[in-house]
């Protein structure tokens, strides 16, 4: 709806001296008494239910009668409303400087999400490379990832973990996609607080955030799933995180900055 149009409408409706409002009615009450009695009958005696059903239909019939054109409404005369006061018992003026918004241009939050997608696509490469180089085969990392939510996995032997398990593949992919998107989103939300130059973004996104994340994982995995923590090789974990972070950061830098509506007439 366009505002100009609505304002025009508001001015046009001003001369009206009455307003059409729905008329008071007893039928919804009758209908709800019907429902209540129907239920009371279940607890006590079915006679109540029979009365309830009768009332229910009486109420419904009356209600439908109200819905007929020109039956359920009445016109209420307008009385004058006093003008809005801005000086009640509390006369404290509003604080203005709180509305200032900084900075003036930022990378959009969506850039962070896109960064998460790019990082998520890049991350398996170092992980798989390490796994193959260490002789674990390509499925080992994804099985470990699935182990985050599938505690039974820790009972499996290392040899078994290197094999292909379709369920774990699906679960691992779901976890990876969700985590990439969420971390990308967090990254996007944090963006305005990061240094605004490109080097700053790369340092923050490619080194600082992955290290914080690794620290969190290192600390928590021992609690969430201790057996799993033994099998993770942390140097490679860090490498994968950094690849993710760099991918995300570069995607962000390549994104177009958007401007925030400027704060006018305020300081």
């Amino acid at each position: 709806m366009s505002e100009a149009k609505s304002e025009k409408e508001a001015t046009e409706s001003r001369p009206a001296e009455t307003i059409e409002m729905p008329r008071s009615t007893v039928w919804p009450l009758v209908l709800s008494v019907g429902i209540a009695l129907l239920m009371v009958g279940i607890a006590t005696n079915l006679v109540f239910s029979v009365v309830g059903i009768v009332l229910l239909f009486v109420g419904l019939g009356g209600w439908i009668g109200e819905l007929r054109p020109h039956h359920g409404e009445e016109r209420i005369p307008i009385v004058d409303v006093p003008p809005i006061e801005f000086a009640g018992p509390a006369k404290v003026e509003g604080v203005r400087r709180a509305r200032l918004r900084l900075p003036t241009t930022i990378h959009p939050i969506s850039a962070g999400v896109r960064g998460g997608i790019v990082g998520g696509l890049l991350m398996p490469i170092p992980a798989a490379a390490w796994s193959i180089w260490a002789g674990h085969g390509i499925w080992y990392p994804i099985n470990l990832l699935a182990g985050l939510v599938m505690p039974d996995l820790t009972d499996l032997s290392a040899a078994n973990l290197e094999q292909f398990h379709p369920t774990y593949l699906v679960i691992g992919i779901i976890i990876h996609v969700l985590m990439s998107l969420v971390i990308g989103l967090v990254y996007g939300v944090l963006l305005p607080t990061l240094p605004s130059n490109n080097v700053g973004i790369i340092i923050a996104g490619g080194i600082v955030l992955p290290m914080i994340w690794t620290g969190l994982c290192h600390g928590w995995m021992g609690i969430v799933n201790p057996l799993l923590a033994d099998r993770v090789e942390w140097p490679w974990f860090v490498v994968s995180q950094v690849v993710f972070g760099l991918g995300a950061s570069i995607t962000v830098i390549l994104s177009e900055r958007v401007s925030i509506p400027p704060a006018e007439g305020d300081a």
């Binding site: 709806m1 149009k5 609505s6 409408e9 508001a10 409706s13 059409e20 409002m21 729905p22 409404e73």
Partner: peptide
């Protein structure tokens, strides 16, 4: 249901 300006999104 009872205000005229809502007719526009009928």
């Amino acid at each position: 249901m009872n205000s005229s300006h809502h007719a526009e999104h009928a």
